[in-house]
Simulated scan of single mutants.
Amino acid sequence: MPQPKKRAARKLLSRHAWITLDGGFAARHCLVEDISDTGAKIMMDDDASQLPGVIRMAFARDARTGRSCQVIWRRGRSAGVRFI
């Protein structure tokens, strides 16, 4: 029987962050609710269904910082991202 995938330990965070779209344009505010080595759960000010498949997330508004993320799931104002 194959071993079940072990999920990375998540840390509750509740820290303000910014996501950027389109190569650094359209910075949008979000709240990082929890984070792990592999990804994070974010809460948007509006509907998260409008997020594209790949975003950049940073704890500063500067588009040159942060990490590229793949959006894995979207539910209402929440989304799950995996760091790439």
Rank of each mutant, 00 (worst) to 15 (best):
K5R: 14
K5T: 13
K6D: 06
K6C: 01
K6I: 10
K6E: 14
R7S: 15
R7N: 14
R7K: 15
A8Q: 09
A9E: 10
K11S: 13
K11D: 09
L12V: 10
L12E: 13
L13P: 08
L13F: 13
S14C: 11
R15E: 12
R15V: 14
R15C: 11
R15W: 13
H16Y: 08
A17P: 13
A17D: 10
A17M: 09
W18S: 12
I19E: 02
T20A: 10
T20R: 13
L21I: 11
L21A: 00
D22E: 12
G23W: 00
G23R: 11
G24K: 07
G24T: 05
A26K: 06
A26W: 04
A27F: 08
R28T: 00
H29E: 12
H29I: 03
H29V: 02
H29G: 08
C30L: 07
L31S: 06
L31F: 04
L31P: 00
V32Y: 04
V32Q: 02
V32R: 03
E33R: 14
D34W: 09
D34I: 00
I35T: 04
I35E: 12
I35N: 03
S36L: 05
S36M: 03
D37Y: 08
T38R: 03
G39K: 04
A40S: 10
K41Y: 07
K41E: 06
K41I: 00
K41D: 02
K41Q: 11
I42M: 02
I42D: 01
M43W: 01
M44K: 01
M44R: 01
D46V: 10
D46T: 11
D46I: 04
D47H: 00
D47C: 02
A48E: 07
A48D: 00
S49Q: 12
Q50M: 07
L51E: 00
L51T: 01
L51Q: 01
P52E: 04
V54R: 09
I55Y: 07
R56F: 03
M57V: 15
M57H: 04
M57T: 03
A58P: 08
A58N: 08
F59L: 06
F59I: 05
F59P: 06
F59Y: 14
D62W: 10
D62N: 15
A63D: 12
A63R: 10
R64Y: 10
R64G: 13
R64H: 13
R64E: 12
T65M: 13
G66M: 10
S68L: 15
S68W: 14
S68F: 15
C69I: 06
Q70N: 12
V71I: 12
V71W: 01
V71Y: 05
I72W: 00
W73A: 11
G76S: 10
G76L: 06
R77F: 05
S78T: 07
A79Y: 05
A79M: 08
G80Q: 06
G80L: 07
G80A: 07
G80E: 05
